[in-house]
Amino acid sequence: MLDLMTVDSAGDLAPPAPATKEELLARVAHGDQSAFGELYDQIAPRVLGLVKRLLVDHAQSEEVTQEIFLEIWQSAARYEPTRGGASTWILTMAHRRAVDRIRSSQAGRDRDTKIGIRDLAVAYDHVAETVEVRIEHERVEKAMTRLTQLQRQAVSLAYYGGFSHSEVADMLHIPLGTVKTRLRDGLIRLRDELGVAS
């Protein structure tokens, strides 16, 4: 039997089974820095992947990723497991922050709208690194095919491009009201296709 006391003094390095993100967040809420490090290792690539998807620039994306994790540290006590998983909480925060950066920075405004148009190809140009991500890719890609073209374009521009609904309206040359309904109808369709329900 392993005696816990024999564990290396930096013994938080390798617990036998990795803690769940929810457990880690609960520890982070109590100021546990090693839990924060572990949580970071688990999800930072996802956060940076998403942020970089929107911001494109790597250095700026890392900056925003730091912001996001500092916010996680600060507000971990406000995460409520009953309202959804830790990944949901964190990725929602990540997307929000990336969008904020786009809206607030000149760099964001300078992004060529072609980036957004290019994004209509929906981000599947990367080879997925893990089975988990690959499966998620395929699921989302398949669900996306169930949308009308206009729904798909509007949702992609807004989510992956970080464009506001009025920017989406300009880019697609459709009225703002139409964009709103396309975004909502599109997401509802995706929700049903992906089996998301609370």
């Binding site: 940076l48 998807r53 890392e62 080879v127 991500v133 699921r139 992956y160 909502r184 992906l194």
Partner: peptide, 20 residues
Amino acid sequence: AELNDTAVALGLAVAPVQPS
């Protein structure tokens, strides 16, 4: 809440990028 979860599913489909 459901649409938020749906949006997160879109986020989970993005390829991860390892930070420096």
